[in-house]
């Protein structure tokens, strides 16, 4: 098992952002985390990557407990992630952004950029890129960092339809190459198209886990999204 999340809870003041969540991510799959706004998806991502300490529960990556480690150790243990609002190093060049992830040669960096459809010279400053391009750079950075699990927080948010299509083909290719991906996504067509498994969160709890076609038919899931 790549990732196992057991009984994770996190309160902010009186609000239960995550309330006893358990799920697993199998190796070589794309698992999507979906749910209405405020369901606790990003909080769960932050807990898994160590940015937020959980109140209770355990998280294991490849059978090693990681939930009491600082973020940089969790990253070293093998988790790579992106953010809902991109976090590129804006004053630094594309090359330096990638260098922080992994000091590979320029050739490898150029190939990687090509593979994520970011055709820009390596010395371009990140702040000169459009928002969509910054997302691609962040994705490239996460891919370059050695990892066993890739976590993407709403990769299609705020990007144009062309980049959205490109992202879909990138993720499909990564899946084919044997990567394991955990994804937060609001675009249902996108999720249904690329996911092997879907975890539905609602009000901090796991509502349903299943294959995309089962999720699409589930009454409770529809209610959570559309109301009764």
């Amino acid at each position: 098992m790549m990732l196992s999340v057991k009984n994770i809870s996190k309160n902010f003041g009186g609000i239960k952002a995550v309330d006893g969540c358990s799920f697993e991510v199998k190796e070589n799959t794309i698992t999507s985390l979906i749910g209405p706004n405020g369901a606790g998806k990003t909080t769960l991502f932050n807990v898994i990557s160590g940015l937020t300490a959980p109140d209770s529960g355990t998280i294991k990556l490849l059978n090693k407990k990681i939930n009491n480690l600082p973020p940089y150790k969790i990253a070293q243990a093998g988790i790579s992630r992106t953010f809902q609002l991109t976090k590129v190093f804006k004053n630094m060049s594309i090359k330096d952004n990638l260098l922080i992830a992994n000091n590979t040669g320029e050739d490898k960096m150029k190939k990687l950029l090509e593979s994520v459809y970011l055709q820009k010279p390596l010395n371009t400053t990140a702040s000169e890129l459009s928002y969509g391009q910054q997302r691609l750079l962040e994705l490239a950075r996460a891919l370059l960092k050695p990892h066993s699990l890739l976590m993407l927080d709403e990769p299609t948010a705020g990007v144009n339809p062309r980049i959205r299509q490109e992202l879909k083909s990138i993720l499909k290719r990564l899946r084919k190459d044997g990567k394991t991906i955990l994804l937060i996504e609001h675009d249902m067509d996108f999720v249904m198209d690329i996911s092997d498994f879907v975890v539905v969160l609602n009000e901090g709890k796991v509502l349903k886990i299943g294959k995309p076609k089962d999720i699409a038919k589930d009454k409770r899931v529809l209610e959570a999204y559309l109301g009764k």
Binding site: P70, Y72, I79, I100
Partner: peptide
């Protein structure tokens, strides 16, 4: 935060 999640 980004530097930390890249393992630094």
């Amino acid at each position: 935060t980004a530097a930390a999640i890249l393992g630094k």
